[in-house]
Design a protein around this nucleic acid. Sequence first.
DNA 1: TCCAATTAGTTTTCAATCTGAACTATATGG
DNA 2: CCATATAGTTCAGATTGAAAACTAATTGGA
Lengths: 401, 401
Amino acid sequence: MNESAAPGRVGDVRRRNLSLVLDSIARTGDAKPSRAQLAAGTGLTKAAVSSLVADLVESGLVSEVGLYRDGERGRPGQGLELSSRRGVVGMEINVDYLAVGLVDLGGNLRFHSTVESRNRGMAPGEVMERLRGLVSEAVAAAAAEKVAIMGGGLAVPGQVDEQRNIVLSAPNLHWENEQLDPGSLLEGAPLGVRLSNEANSAALGELWYGNGPADFLYVSGEVGVGGGVIIGSDLYLGPGGSAGELGHIVVHPEGPECSCGGAGCLETFAGQEAIFDAANIPEGSLSERTEQLLAALAAREPHALKAVHDAGRYLGVALASSARLMDIDAIVLGGHFALLAEWLRPALLASLERYAPGLLEPKNLTVSGLEHSGTLLGAAGQVIRSVIESPFEFLLAGKLA
Amino acid sequence: MNESAAPGRVGDVRRRNLSLVLDSIARTGDAKPSRAQLAAGTGLTKAAVSSLVADLVESGLVSEVGLYRDGERGRPGQGLELSSRRGVVGMEINVDYLAVGLVDLGGNLRFHSTVESRNRGMAPGEVMERLRGLVSEAVAAAAAEKVAIMGGGLAVPGQVDEQRNIVLSAPNLHWENEQLDPGSLLEGAPLGVRLSNEANSAALGELWYGNGPADFLYVSGEVGVGGGVIIGSDLYLGPGGSAGELGHIVVHPEGPECSCGGAGCLETFAGQEAIFDAANIPEGSLSERTEQLLAALAAREPHALKAVHDAGRYLGVALASSARLMDIDAIVLGGHFALLAEWLRPALLASLERYAPGLLEPKNLTVSGLEHSGTLLGAAGQVIRSVIESPFEFLLAGKLA
DNA sequence: TCCAATTAGTTTTCAATCTGAACTATATGG
DNA sequence: CCATATAGTTCAGATTGAAAACTAATTGGA
């Protein structure tokens, strides 16, 4: 007999409807819907919504916020919102900095702190120890604001095995198959700490808290070129969990060797190193080199202009192929590419039009507006979404003060 | 208030479990499971399975097939199988032929007929009229075998709007935005006729009735180069329904203009025309040219060898990029590529190893074993799967004789 | 031959959870 | 101050699966 999906039980209906109601409250956001409005919006009866909301309020995920009065006659409703006293800590390890943030259930960034840290080549244990210091600030801020921490999300610039907390490969940190213990960063948080890829988290941040549409490719230009694929308001991870590797799309079959062992990958044309080299920017720290590049571009220095133009052109080749293959018609640029957007965009649009005419309207090529907090928000948001999608599990597990 | 998913009702549990049981019977295939085995396999209780099976038997989807005796002690079980008296008509319109088949619920091809037909440039109405003749043979065969026809699936070599029955673009037929009326091919079939893309249907045929694993890229080498993406045993269609366009992945940014308006697309290197031209095969019918090409390859004619080698190399570029982007590690070759596999495979494997080293094990590059019936089986299979996934709807709609 | 053991399948009781209708609660406005 | 309107709760009824007890059918050994 084949293994099959789990059988449906009567109780599954309630799990689903708890999630449906919670998600409706989350989507409605600032409007603070009443039970009656939720009933109308979800298609459930008022009786069912009342019963579901009672459970959600009891668990602490939802709060009643006074009376809702809209000038009409009749009894006013009780406004409902995601509790601002439940939060998740977002954490980011990147090549040159560490960052933490406290995100409440409603998606508000209640605390945020970033420190520079040369993490390239540093041992994971050392980096985690430094991060621990930052996390304690976030924990203190949470205590001060009376926010109970449900869990955390940790984003790293590399491929991860989320189930086993392993960083499979983070070439820019020089990490390879590193076992981490992210849970130790937040002892006692009922939902633990979830490890994720930086580009994927940034894409999700853009989706939930930025301007991302339901379907788009997020392009993360950090030291490497990463990507996140959002389809139907969901992250597409692929069967093995490492989809979205835009940086290793082949954009020229006779192109240079790539660090991945292949050749002609996008990263060899549009990675930070490739751009800095082509623009004749001397060695130095990332922030210095970035400033010099931007200055050179502002001064219309020909090498710099050509470097960015070529990066845009090859990015267009990769995105034309990807967008066609996956039938996606919107792109969001993040990281380095967001900084360079002013100079990159024309070449990228021209290239897209050359290689996939008519596929993408220029207005659907946008730039992330979240800056550095996008990754943080996305990393924390994954834990928040998991609660919104499975509140029943939280009801059982998450009896916090 | 936002539109949300439908609320869960108590009855949804039964819908799901009906599907679960039906799917278990389908997967178990020839083993003809008993109710007790289904209970063990699904995790439902025997009582629940008995009740669910009663509905499925009453609807005619499932039949009891005598007693099940395995030599052990105890009361023998009643074997259950998908009814062989319910079927779906698979239909295919391609550039040089029409085909129909009768597929029963168990996936057996009970009748099959193909006729040559030069459909390129022919008006859709004329093609449909010819197809109607073939369909009547299948209907007669169904009557003779006492198979009740539930619905049909029609595959065409182009992009389709399945909801509105429009062929958006089938360049090799010279069809553009053609409104079809596939339902008229099978008047009275309760589930109607579903329009689909040829490569997608072939991929699904491979998944359900061939050797396809749960995740793979299907490459269909017909006049154009098409593709089907199977992820998690499901067809990935993308937000707009036209994902999998492998033929228009850019494999060389300085490559020739493509009929799609782009440049350097895979199709310009590995489409049938490109291969025939490069191999110096004179104009003629497809089957003639194919024979000549195979003869030339067998004779080790250098142009022919190089043409196929180059096609394999560029196919490798496209597949390396696609497989990385979508994190897929298996490929199935169909159509023209299946015929040429002997000569194509070495170049393709070398190219994959060059551009995505270590990504794909050679054993995961396979050739379709279904030949021409793959598309037919897939087209019909989509209707069969829709019944297996939503038997409740069929219980209501499909009270056939 | 016949009964204990074994396995298949059904019946019965119970709990969960939704719907729908009736009911209570609380506001507005003439 | 009461008619009207809207929010929210209570309760009966229906659906459905779980659990356990029961009936059915077969094997194998006494």
